[in-house]
Simulated assay, not measured.
Amino acid sequence: MLIKTSEFIISAVKREQYPTDNRVEIAFVGRSNVGKSSIINALTNRKKLAKVSQTPGKTRLINFFLINNDFHLVDLPGYGYAKVSKKEQASWGKTIETYLHGREELKRVVLLVDSRHKPTADDITMFEWIKHYGYDVIVVATKKDKLSNNDLRKSEKLIRDTLKLTSEDKLYFFSSLNKKGRDELIDNLFGDLASEE
Rank of each mutant, 00 (worst) to 15 (best):
residue 184 E to N: 12
residue 19 P to A: 10
residue 107 K to G: 05
residue 97 E to W: 00
residue 41 N to Y: 13
residue 195 S to E: 14
residue 188 N to T: 01
residue 144 K to E: 15
residue 154 K to M: 07
residue 160 R to F: 09
residue 195 S to W: 07
residue 72 H to N: 10
residue 77 P to R: 00
residue 193 L to N: 08
residue 181 G to Y: 01
residue 118 K to H: 05
residue 63 N to S: 13
residue 144 K to S: 14
residue 20 T to M: 10
residue 138 I to A: 13
residue 8 F to M: 02
residue 167 S to V: 05
residue 94 K to E: 14
residue 74 V to I: 12
residue 25 E to V: 08
residue 128 E to N: 15
residue 175 S to V: 04
residue 44 T to G: 07
residue 129 W to C: 02
residue 193 L to C: 09
residue 20 T to N: 12
residue 61 L to Q: 14
residue 181 G to M: 03
residue 56 P to L: 05
residue 166 T to Y: 01
residue 142 T to V: 11
residue 18 Y to V: 06
residue 11 S to R: 09
residue 107 K to N: 11
residue 189 L to E: 04
residue 180 K to Y: 13
residue 27 A to S: 13
residue 89 Q to I: 09
residue 50 A to E: 10
residue 176 S to T: 10
residue 193 L to S: 10
residue 33 N to A: 09
residue 56 P to E: 05
residue 103 R to K: 12
residue 180 K to W: 08
residue 73 L to D: 01
residue 111 L to D: 01
residue 105 E to Q: 15
residue 33 N to T: 03
residue 114 D to S: 09
residue 177 L to T: 14
residue 69 N to H: 10
residue 28 F to A: 06
residue 60 R to M: 12
residue 157 K to T: 12
residue 148 S to M: 05
residue 119 P to L: 06
residue 165 L to D: 08
residue 141 A to Y: 08
residue 84 V to K: 08
residue 178 N to D: 15
residue 193 L to K: 03
residue 106 L to Y: 09
residue 171 L to H: 07
residue 176 S to A: 15
residue 176 S to R: 03
residue 169 D to L: 06
residue 21 D to V: 04
residue 8 F to I: 07
residue 33 N to W: 07
residue 37 S to M: 07
residue 189 L to Q: 06
residue 42 A to F: 10
residue 148 S to Q: 03
residue 197 E to K: 10
residue 194 A to P: 11
residue 91 S to R: 14
residue 9 I to T: 05
residue 92 W to T: 04
residue 84 V to A: 13
residue 122 D to I: 08
residue 31 R to V: 08
residue 136 D to T: 11
residue 93 G to T: 00
residue 43 L to S: 06
residue 167 S to E: 15
residue 100 L to I: 02
residue 139 V to R: 00
